[in-house]
Simulated scan of single mutants.
Amino acid sequence: MELRNLEHFVAVAEEGSFTRAAERLHLVQSTLSVSVKSLEKELGGPLFDRSTHHVALTDAGRALLVEARHALAAVEAARDAVAAVHGGLRGTVRVGIMHSLTLIDLAALLTRYHREHPEVQIVPSTAQGGSVELAAQVTDGRLDLAFVSLPGGRPPGLSVHPLATEPLLLACQDDHPFARRSVVPLAELDGERFVDFPAGWGTRLSVDRLFLAEGLRRVIAVEVTDIPTVTELVRAGFGFAFLTASLTRDSPAITLRPVRPTPQFAVSLVTPATRRLSAAARALADLVLSMFDPAAQQVRTRVRPGRETRGGR
């Protein structure tokens, strides 16, 4: 079994297409097809179902994909280790990033890493499925590490390193009665309409868990994937939202109020617990953790009674 065959197989599996995989690998499609067929012949069975326009993995293909990613990651780690001995880290680090990650100065962190390890290529990516999808991609090897918000437990196969937390505040219209309250009891939001992010996003997970624990319900009137749209819908009276002060720093004015009990937005770094990181990825993880002293991991955002807190001000 040759490494290039595994690389070709993984590319087709991830792209769901021989054509797109060939473009990604800078190969002609016939060469890629021959490589995959050679691997199938060696393993004694088909790895892809080619009966549809979208190439799908067979059961054997799904089983191989996990092991192929691990094997390629191990080879990359071996190359990185030798490169480090000869005077510097090289390779690629695939980093998952939440949408609107404002609680951490990620740009400064990555700039410092690039300055210390200029030969390493950092490939950031987001996911429409939010933190849940990013965590799954770290587990199966598509990402080396990721910044996520996963309240309520440690997913299997991952190591979770807490970095910072911030309270989620109730966003409402300026002229709503809640805007004149110093604190809003969570129970008073039972049955209300909300504008929220998709189910896999960290803020949504935190609020959903708290409402469930308190025996309350809320109506998700609409799901959106960006902060400006959320704030505009709140201003238009479409519903309430839960946001943090840092998320609304550059948004149009809306009133934010603390609620009791308070949902929390917690950012963590997740790394694989069942496979070894490459030297380049391990160096990035070490840098992240070194910049967050455990004694200062919590960002405390307090709203004094009687004072308005508005996004964008």
Rank of each mutant, 00 (worst) to 15 (best):
T309M: 13
D80P: 02
I220S: 08
V66E: 15
L287N: 02
V148D: 00
H117T: 05
V85G: 07
R94W: 10
R275H: 11
L64A: 06
A83E: 12
G87L: 12
V138G: 01
P261D: 14
P118K: 14
D59P: 08
V267A: 00
F240W: 05
F18T: 02
E232D: 13
H8P: 03
P185M: 10
E133Y: 03
L163H: 02
S246F: 04
R115I: 06
T52Q: 13
R204P: 00
R193C: 09
R307E: 13
D49Y: 06
Q297K: 10
T231M: 07
L134K: 01
V222W: 09
L109K: 04
V267N: 00
L101F: 04
L106H: 04
T262Y: 03
G45V: 08
A273Q: 07
V299H: 10
A179Y: 04
A136G: 14
L169R: 01
E192N: 05
A108D: 13
V299W: 05
L39F: 03
A146I: 03
R4L: 13
T309G: 05
R204D: 01
E188L: 07
G16K: 04
L72G: 07
Q137S: 06
A285S: 12
R235K: 14
V184D: 03
V66S: 15
L163K: 01
R154W: 06
P294K: 11
H86V: 09
E116W: 09
S125I: 05
A179D: 05
L43H: 08
V195K: 02
A73H: 13
F147V: 01
G215V: 09
S38W: 02
L243W: 01
A187C: 08
Y113I: 06
A71N: 05
L110E: 09
P228M: 13
E14S: 11
S30N: 12
H161A: 04
E308G: 07
S33Y: 09
V219S: 11
V75C: 07
A273R: 07
R4S: 14
L145H: 01
H161Y: 06
S246C: 12
V222K: 11
L158C: 10
V82P: 05
R180N: 08
A296F: 15
L143T: 01
L189G: 02
G191D: 13
Q264G: 14
M98E: 04
L3S: 14
F238K: 09
G306A: 14
K41L: 15
E14T: 11
A60Q: 12
Q264H: 13
F147A: 00
S278A: 14
R304T: 14
T229M: 12
S278E: 03
R275Y: 07
L233F: 10
A78V: 14
V160E: 00
P252H: 06
E192V: 06
R282A: 12
R50S: 12
V234P: 01
V28N: 15
R181E: 13
G61V: 04
T52K: 11
L163D: 00
A171V: 06
G45P: 04
V12E: 02
